[in-house]
């Protein structure tokens, strides 16, 4: 492989899933904050919760479609985010070198990572677990609040609230770094490919162990 080669990091089904997830989650986050703060009049609040419900249904269908249509991708993603080594701990000690790079314009040594760095793994775990909790709790709060024992409904509401806030905070970091790493951003939202040299720098273990030349 040469430096001018590209690596397909995000196949089509991943990009479609991610795009719908991004749009639906951003919608859910904004409408969820409005529902929490209640700043609007009655009819507007009703519209907001209707948008929230529709976005929630879209996110659910997106997750289910990805689960069933790209099950291998789900398995690979799950395996990758739940696979840890000593390098992950070391990565956290320098936070991937990003603060030094962004704030001090300094480059520090970063432990070699696989396809996902340690921060992305942590985010991935929260997206997997938290996203599942949000979907299940959201459906329960929408459809069954009068049937589920209300102590449980209240607890489900609290889980929905706190998981939402955690994921929104993660999302802010994810958005910033996603835009900061413009090649990865373009890959995820456009063509799926990242430059070889970029992958070799940020994900050397992935390039070394999992990538092979095709064509």
């Amino acid at each position: 492989m040469t430096d001018s080669s590209f690596i397909l990091k995000h196949p089509m089904q991943v990009r479609v899933f991610h795009f719908i997830l991004a749009v639906s989650f951003l919608t859910l986050a904004v409408t969820g904050i409005i529902l929490f703060q209640k700043p609007l009049q009655e009819a507007a609040m009703n519209t907001v919760i209707q948008i929230h419900v529709v976005a929630g249904v879209v996110m659910t269908l997106d997750a289910l479609a990805f689960l069933f249509l790209a099950f291998d991708r789900v398995v690979m993603f799950t395996k990758r985010v739940f696979t840890f080594s000593g390098n992950d701990l070391k990565w956290f000690t320098v936070l991937g070198g990003y603060p030094q790079k962004i704030l001090l314009h300094k480059k520090v040594e970063v432990p070699p990572m696989g396809k996902y760095n340690a921060g992305q793994k942590l985010f991935g775990i929260f997206v997997l677990v938290g996203g599942t909790l949000l979907i299940l709790s959201g459906w329960a709060l929408w459809t069954l609040p009068h049937i589920i024992p209300h102590g449980d409904t209240s607890m489900i509401g609290t889980i929905h609230l706190y998981v939402s806030w955690i994921l929104i905070l993660f999302l802010l970091v994810h958005l910033f770094l996603g835009i900061y790493m413009v090649d990865d951003f373009k890959a995820m939202f456009l063509h799926g490919r990242i430059p070889y040299e970029d992958a070799a720098e940020k994900s050397p273990l992935w390039v070394k162990n999992d990538i092979c030349k095709i064509g």
Binding site: I148, P149, H150, G151, D152, S154, M155
Partner: peptide
């Protein structure tokens, strides 16, 4: 007020 009713979680 019985919060948990017949809930298994309760």
């Amino acid at each position: 007020i019985c919060d948990t009713g017949s809930s298994w979680i309760g």
